[in-house]
C-alpha cells in the first residue's frame, strides 16, 4: 500500500515518526529495528550550549500517561552536529531537528547551524517545552512572540520549519495563525500539557522540578480536538502527536487533520512500537476502506468542505 505523505517540500515514505525527546538521537532504537522503516526521525531538542537538564526524579507515571521534566538535556547544537548526526547519516530517513532556546538569538543560532546540516531535512521549532524556566514556552503562549521567533528562524533556515505548538494556551488557533503568517512551513502539535503529581508520603511533588509535561493516551482527545480546531484555520501540513499507541490512533489523527504523526511516550513502553505501526498501518487503513494515506486526507478534505 502507498503510505507516502508530502508535508510541503518534505517527502516521507510513510506518516510515522518518533517524536522529539522520546527517541534520543536514534542510536538506542537502532538496536531494535532498522530505522529506515520510519517515515522520519524527530531528534531530541538542541540548544545553543550543552544543558544538563533538571534534577531527578524527572518522570512520574499518571493514569494512561506520564509526566516528564527532563529539562532539555542535550550536548548543545555543536555537540549534536559532531557526535550524533554522523550516526543518522547512514540512514535514508529525513531527520527533523528540534531546536529550542531561551532567547531569540539562541533560536537563530541553533536554527542556522542545524539547517546547514545535509542530513537535517526540516526544523521543528520548539516553542512549547514546559520544563525549563526560560526555555521557549513563553514564545509559544504569546502569538506576537511566536510570530517573531518563527519569522527570525525562517529568515536563517535553509530547510522547512515546523512550529511545535503548546496546548497550554487559551486558543491554540491564535498561535497557529500567527506562526503561519510568520512563514511557518508546517505545524507540529501538540506538545505536553503542564501537570503535577504529589507524593503522599513525602507531601511534595514526585518530580523534582515540581511540574512536568503530561503525555500519553491521557492527552489524545485533547490533541485530536486541537488538531481539528487548527485544521479549520489553516492548510499547513500538520504533524500530529499526543498518546498514539495503535494504528487506529494514527487513523484518528489523520482524520482529525494531521498529515503525519509522531509517536512519543509509547516508545518507552514498547521500543518496537514505531516499526509495528508502520507495518500494521496498511491493514488498518484497509479495514476502514482506505487504499492509501492520501485517500484518508482526501476523505477528510471532502468531509470538511461539506460540514463543520
Amino acid at each position: 500500500m502507498n503510505l507516502e505523505v508530502t508535508l510541503g517540500d518534505l517527502h516521507l515514505n510513510n506518516p510515522i515518526m518518533p517524536a522529539s525527546g522520546c527517541f534520543g538521537f536514534g542510536r538506542e532504537f537502532s538496536a531494535f529495528y532498522d530505522l529506515n522503516q520510519l517515515g522520519a526521525i524527530a531528534i531530541k531538542a538542541a540548544t545553543g550550549e550543552a544543558r544538563f537538564g533538571n534534577q531527578t526524579p524527572r518522570v512520574a507515571e499518571t493514569s494512561s500517561g506520564m509526566l516528564n521534566a527532563i529539562g532539555l538535556q542535550n550536548p548543545g547544537v555543536n555537540g549534536i552536529i559532531e557526535q550524533e548526526l554522523p550516526f543518522l547519516n547512514q540512514y535514508n530517513v529525513p531527520v527533523i531537528a528540534n531546536i529550542a532556546g531561551s532567547t531569540l538569538e539562541e533560536y537563530i543560532e541553533v536554527a542556522k547551524k542545524m539547517s546547514e546540516q545535509p542530513v537535517v531535512q526540516a526544523l521543528e521549532l520548539n516553542i512549547s517545552c514546559p520544563n525549563v524556566k526560560e526555555g521557549g514556552v513563553q514564545f509559544g503562549t504569546d502569538p506576537t512572540l511566536a510570530y517573531h521567533v518563527t519569522q527570525a528562524v525562517k529568515s536563517v533556515s535553509t530547510k522547512p520549519v515546523f512550529v511545535k505548538l503548546s496546548p497550554n494556551v487559551t486558543d491554540i488557533t491564535d498561535i497557529a495563525t500567527a506562526v503561519e503568517k510568520a512563514g511557518a512551513d508546517g505545524l507540529s502539535m501538540i506538545n505536553t500539557l503542564t501537570g503535577r503529581r504529589i507524593d503522599l508520603h513525602q507531601q511534595s511533588p514526585i518530580i523534582a522540578n515540581g511540574s512536568g509535561g503530561l503525555s500519553g493516551p491521557a492527552i489524545k482527545p485533547i490533541a485530536i480536538h486541537m488538531i481539528h480546531q487548527v485544521r479549520q484555520k489553516t492548510d499547513l501540513p500538520i504533524i500530529g502527536m499526543g498518546g498514539i499507541q495503535s494504528t487506529e490512533d494514527v487513523l484518528e489523527f489523520l482524520l482529525a487533520g494531521a498529515d503525519a504523526v509522531a509517536v512519543g511516550t509509547a516508545n518507552f513502553q514498547n521500543p518496537f512500537i514505531c516499526e509495528r505501526l508502520v507495518q500494521d498501518l496498511p491493514n488498518t487503513l484497509q479495514a476502514y476502506g482506505f487504499n492509501s494515506v492520501k485517500e484518508v486526507r482526501d476523505a477528510r478534505c471532502s468531509h470538511q468542505s461539506t460540514s463543520h
Binding site: G21, C22, F23, G24, E28, F29, A31, K44, F52, G53, T56, P57, R58, V59, A60, M66, N68, I70, Q73, N267, F268, P271
Partner: peptide, 14 residues
C-alpha cells in the same frame, strides 16, 4: 532511579 524508557533514550535517569 525512576526510569522512563530503560534503554537510554529519554534521559529520565541521569
Amino acid at each position: 532511579e525512576r526510569m522512563g524508557c530503560g534503554v537510554g533514550a529519554c534521559f529520565a535517569c541521569v
